[in-house]
Each structure stands twice: as C-alpha cells, then as structure tokens.
Design a protein around this nucleic acid. Sequence first.
DNA 1: CTGAAAGCGCTAACAC
DNA 2: GTGTTAGCGCTTTCAG
Lengths: 367, 367
Amino acid sequence: MVTVHDVAARSGVSIATVSRTLRAPHRVSEETRDRVLAAVHELGYQPNRAASGLRGGRTGVIGLVVPDIENPYFSSLTKGAQASSRERGYGLVVVDTAEQADVEAAEVRAVGPQIDGIILASSRLSDAALAQLAATTTCVLVNRELVSPPSGPDAFDGAPSAASAPAGAAVPGIVVPTVTIDERAGARAAIGHLHELGHRRIAYVGGPARSWSQARRSRAIREAAQLFPGVDLIELSGYAPDADGGREAADTVLGGGPTAVIAYNDLVALGLLARWTEEGVRVPDDVSLVGFDNTYVAELSFPRLTSVGADLREFGETAVTLLLERLAGAALDEAAMHRELEPRLIARASTAPPRAAAAPARSREDR
Amino acid sequence: MVTVHDVAARSGVSIATVSRTLRAPHRVSEETRDRVLAAVHELGYQPNRAASGLRGGRTGVIGLVVPDIENPYFSSLTKGAQASSRERGYGLVVVDTAEQADVEAAEVRAVGPQIDGIILASSRLSDAALAQLAATTTCVLVNRELVSPPSGPDAFDGAPSAASAPAGAAVPGIVVPTVTIDERAGARAAIGHLHELGHRRIAYVGGPARSWSQARRSRAIREAAQLFPGVDLIELSGYAPDADGGREAADTVLGGGPTAVIAYNDLVALGLLARWTEEGVRVPDDVSLVGFDNTYVAELSFPRLTSVGADLREFGETAVTLLLERLAGAALDEAAMHRELEPRLIARASTAPPRAAAAPARSREDR
DNA sequence: CTGAAAGCGCTAACAC
DNA sequence: GTGTTAGCGCTTTCAG
C-alpha cells in the first residue's frame, strides 16, 4: 500500500504538502504541485478514505438502504444513485434489508460511523425510530415522509440517547429531507389517460394494506377518480406487491366488470397480464391495464405496459443531490427539505379504448 | 459518537480491555466481560470499522463489483452476497460499473484501500488487468476465469508497478479464485429436456459475440447438441443480451424452422416471447422456449419461462464464502481456487412437445 | 488478567 | 509556501 509518506519521499516534500496538494491545490506552489502530482501518478497513490475520514470527519462515502435490491424499482434507483455519487466523487454503500425493519435498524447503526450521510429508500422504520435517526445522522428519505415529531413538539424527553432534538422540530411540517413522487399527479395521469380513452369503470388493484406507498397511492387514485366525470372506481387492496399478487387478483378484479385496471405497480400488472393471457382475456382489447413506477419490466411484456412513474434513475440522483446539499450545510427551507418528482405516464400498448366505445382508431403502439 | 473511551469510562476499565472484550472475549475475566458488554449495550456502542481497519489491517468490508445492478441476474446475485456477508459480520459495498471497463478499473482502485477483498462479477477487465489486480488484492472472480498469466509464465516484466507476480503463476491452471456455473451441464440439461420432449430442430439465440459468457455458453450448447441423437442445432449470435435483442431475433430465428428455441438469457427469451405473442406465434404450442440463468423474470410472463441456471443468491453466497476463505488464508488447492455451481433446469410452461410429435399428454404446468 | 503506549494513514492547526 | 505536530478510534505489543 502506497501512502502519503511514499509520495512525500518521492517528491521531496513533507506529507502535509502532499495532503494539501490533493485537498487544496491552490495553497501550494505550482512547481511543487506538479512534482507531487507526478509522484502520485507514478506511484498510483490512492488516498485511504478510512484514514482521512477518521481524521477529517468526512469519509466521502454515503449509504443507500433499500428493502429489496431485487425489486426493479430499487435496482434502478440504486443505479441512479450510484452513477450520481460516483460523479461527485463519493462512494456509495448499498444495503439490502430484506424488507426487515430490525435489519434496517441494525445496518444503519453498523454503517453509521463510516459514512457521511444516508439515504433511506422506502424505509420500514417507525416514525419514532426515524426521528431519532435523523437527530443523529444526516439522512434523506426516499418514498417516505416524516411530517412531525412522533408525539408532539417536545416529546423528545423520553428518547434515550438522542443527542439533541432536530432544530426545526418545533415547526410543523417535514422534519427529515425527503424526496417523493407526486402521487396525485400520477394518479390523475393514470385516470385521465383512461378517461380520455373512454373508460368509465376502472378498478385499482392495491398493494399491502399497511404500506406507506399503498396508503398514499390509494388515496391519490380515489381523489383523481372524483376529478373526472362519470368515473366509477372499484378498489381492491391487500395484494402482495409482486407478480403473484397480480395473478391472485386477476379473477377477482374482473368480477367487478371494469374496462380498465390500474395496478399497484408494474410487477402486479405483469401478474394480472400473465393470468389474463392464460385465461384468454386480452389486453387491451378486453381490458386496459396501467402499471405504476415505470420500471424496466414494463418493456418486457406483450403488450408493453402503460405505466406511470418518474424516471427512477433520476429519483436516485435527486436523493444523492439532496443529501450532498445537506452535507454541504444548505439552508433548511422547504425547498431544501422536500423534493417532489413529477411522474409521467408512458403510454404503451396495454391501454386502448374500451371495446364498445366509439373512439378514434388507435395506432399500434407496440410495433 | 460513542467510542471505546466512553465504554471504558462507564465500565471502569481501560480502552484496551474494551477492545479485548470485543475481539478476544476469552482473554478477559468473566466478570469484567459482563461489565464491559453491559456498558457496550447501554451506550449503544458501535465499533468504528474505519478506525479498526486502519489499525488492524482488516476493515471488515468486502466489495462487490457488477456491470449492471439493474440486470436481474446481478441484482439477485447481489442479494445473496449481501445476505451472506451480513450474516458473517462483513459489510458489503456494491459498485455498478455501467458495463465500462475503465469505470471498473477506477472503482476497484478507489475502494481498494478500504476493503479486505473484492468480488468481481462478470468482469469486463482484460486478462492482464485482472492478473495485475489479483497480485495486489484478494479477489474472487464470478462468471469469469483467468486461467494462466497473460502472456507466458514470466511475462510480468513489462507490467509497470505490479509489485510481485502471483505466487502460483508458474503453475498452469486457474490463477484467481473463481466461481462459475457448469455451463456444459446447463446446456446438456436444456438440450436434454427439449430432446426428451421430442424436439430435434433446436435454435440457439446467442448474446454479444465478444462476451466471455456467450463464448462459453455457445460452445457448451454445441457440445451438448452432439450428445443427443438427431438433434439439429441452428445457431445465431450477436444479439443484445436483453429483451430488445430477443425482439430483434424473433423473426429470424423462426425462419430456420426450429420447434424449440434456447435463448442466451431470460431477458432475451422474454423479448422473443413478446414479439412472438404479438405475431400470433404461440409458446409452447408453436415453438418451445428455454431461457438461461433462471432469474426472477422467468416467473413474470405467460407462459412462465422454462429456464436453466443455478440459484443466483446461492451464487452470490458462494462467492462471499470463497472470498472469506481466501481472506482467512485457506490453502490454494484446486478446490479452494475454483467452485463450479451445478445449474438446474426449472421446467415451466414454455416448453412442451412439438406440435406434430406423438408425445404423452402434458399436465398444465402454469396453473 | 489488565493497563500504558505506540502507531495505522491522514488532515488541520500551528509554526516557520 | 511548507514543515512539524497532534491526534481521529482503534488494536496490539509489552509491561506489570
């Protein structure tokens, strides 16, 4: 392992100058700088982040915690975060918690000391645990909000070793920086798209009852349905957020006689599609189908899946950006605390006018 | 941040004893041990890996480098590696190289100092680069082999700053520990399965021409085809290893008149399936379809995809195991250097006897 | 069995 | 501008 000492010896300066050359080049004469950099290059010197973190406080590494890296939603998010943090010279440690809150808590504590900040995606942690974590660590929530302190503005007394209550805790509003997706806009886009095609009887196949996303998404769908005249919403919920959940819901949802179905996410949508295809129900001829999140799996099926969501890589990038701003000590105004991404509906071949509707001929989108 | 000093103060011992209690409990009296552990627990002390790594040499962190975390193959692999390393008390840093060899090289160098060892999955690095890396770092290759030194036993002269040639370099054979999949067994399973169903004219849709996996897989398929009497193999190659590649190959491959098609991987298979479905070609009625790798996407389609592959999570676990063994200084015999996983063919609904064949009635597998 | 002390590689005051 | 020095939190001899 080549250290500052090696570089110093080779370039005939002290280790301090080596460090300075790398961290604050303008504080070093041009001549020495060149010599040092040459030595750095020749020796292939690579600063040891662990050591500099130990001394300087900053480690140059941030953490990303996801419940399930196998889920295309999170793997795309991770990809975006990875690219973005690399670009800015930060390392990224990815942790998969296998959907378990206790694993999440343990991992967060374990990596805590060696990272500058952490991004929690779809955290399974309780509000209280999150509040406590936020008091200790610089963190950013993704796809989750923490609006107010767990139990009243000054209920932090009971907290064991939470060093200090967050500065803005007394002010109502978002307490931890958050990046979310504008769920209402998404729901409006989905329902609006179907409405425009002529659908009036629309079903929503919801995810797990106690999921933060499902609660939010379901409410948004209900609100959006009100906005469009004549839309009749059939709501189901409690299905697993994967293809099996969709397969399971396939028969039931058709029972309600909808001409279009919106699924909790793309995986559920693919499950619905698979089961329907098996039974001879055709998409979009017999029923239109819309997924959520716009993951890459929407491109895998026939017909390709119309899906509404933000760009997931951008989502990851935004989270990194927000975290880095916090790390740099940005002000804590609303804009700095909360970022909401605008989802777009990507119309693919799984949506079309309902069979009976007199709608304009549709161009084949899936060619 | 709570440090050894805090724990020491609280339990009335020296910091050395705290450290000892944690690293070598048997070298501490039972009484002190209890006191220290109590303090550790009460204070929520968490050893700082960066610091202990700095001092002790070992950081307790290993790296995993993948070309594309979005690819289900690698996300499952990652999941396995993550679970396995957590279980053994190691941290895992995941790096996505976006398929770029230069990014891979840079990242490997960047994380090098702060990790104990590294797993390179489907590395895009050249043999020479790999050999050099292996000389410096403890590493394990996944889905890639490095059989002999780049250009003869003692051709390391030209290498710039490669400290020392690997110890076993003079001996022919695998130079870097490797975990791969028995590609021949996989190909035999695929062809055998189709042969048994009655297929004789079988096409293989290969991946990118210059990929290590494609070369290996293609050869294995050709060899396997020889093993079964009457099998007529049509080989294509050069398609992108994703659904678009499959869509693109769909028409061409059918031109050869096969009754069954084997795809380079599951994504390609789904692309084929999607395009065929669009065109009214039915699977498995008109043509049977087999994927490779057995990723979770094989479960997403209708019909579900017959696929051959090892358990990907286990693959990830095995890589971690092997790396940890190397780290612990295991002997360098063949078994310790190379692990080959046995793939299994998971028969799902995408394969059936060819239309004309007089084969026993098949039970509906996709119900 | 326990404590004191010497660093691991690095950065940030502080001198010169 | 550059060098000297004091640690960051931890492990590990080496004494006691």
